[in-house]
Design a protein around this nucleic acid. Structure first.
Ligand SMILES: [Mn+2]
Ligand SMILES: [Mn+2]
Ligand SMILES: [Zn+2]
Ligand SMILES: [Zn+2]
Lengths: 136, 136
DNA sequence: TTCGTTGTTTATAATTATTCTAAAGAAGAT
DNA sequence: ATCTTCTTTAGAATAATTATAAACAACGAA
């Protein structure tokens, strides 16, 4: 449980002004035990439910991108028409439940180390991530 | 090198009528040595260059989806605004050159076997694919 | 071959996610 | 309080994709 005050500090430390919209979004995103996977629309709806204060869709886009740029959110490439975001910003692996369209984090030890045996001249590896698709 | 006649048969066997548009697209997609990674727009432009016959964008979309449904093309989830397709329809791993926005196939032996240690009740694994992002 | 059926192509409109714009509003500094 | 800069917002714009419906082409049966 992170307090409003801590979010304000976090925002200030990131040179992002602590507006009530941003604090609201922080509370939805970061006051959680588990990793949260979401689309912009998911988030927009959660915020609408949460409080009477309405936050515009444009602000949700702006804020998510600001947080992404600061490294507080990760973008996840999934076959879909919508972009997914993830509050777990470390390099990590996923289950993707194809039917439910839901992401589930895998711990590194659930997958084990992966050694890439091939290299491309002039390029280096930035990340290695596994996507495990699940069906019924 | 596959002949026009063979594409016609392939289409017939798939209950797709061998129209000149579809044959044209087959020739662009499948007359290749190596795996081909492309977006709809890439393909549309290649076809424009190739012959005087113009194929409409709608037909390119229709045909790619028809081929995808028949299992002749694979969709690749990459962070981007455009969907990528792949003529290599097996489960396989990729390099993604982030700067060039280009996909490169990895052979299974370039990565090695991956054992997933976690399971979700009622779900089984459909595929396991690795995405290795490359930077300069 | 002609005809009727069904599948296909195409131009165009519609949809959807996302980004842009520009004006009004809020935060921070002085 | 005032000024500056950043932020929010409604609404317009963009871009990828999908839907529509009319013209057209492939096919099989007569
Ligand atoms: Mn995750
Ligand atoms: Mn590939
Ligand atoms: Zn972003
Ligand atoms: Zn498809």
């Amino acid at each position: 449980m992170t307090s409003k005050q801590e979010f304000i500090e976090k925002l200030r430390n990131s040179s992002l002004r602590p507006t009530k919209q941003r604090i609201n979004i922080c509370e939805v995103l970061f006051n959680r035990d588990k990793t949260f996977h979401f689309t912009i629309n998911d988030l927009f709806n959660l915020i609408k439910d949460r409080t009477a204060d309405k936050v515009s869709l444009a602000t949700v886009y702006n804020t998510v991108h600001a947080f992404h740029k600061k490294g507080y959110l990760k973008e996840i490439p999934i076959n879909s028409n919508q972009t997914y975001f993830d509050t777990n910003v470390t390099d990590h692996h996923h289950f993707f439940d194809v039917k439910e369209e839901k992401l589930i984090d895998l711990k590194n030890e659930d997958v084990g180390p992966i050694e890439i045996q091939k290299s491309i001249p002039g390029k280096k590896i930035k990340s290695v991530e596994v996507l495990v698709k699940l069906e019924d």
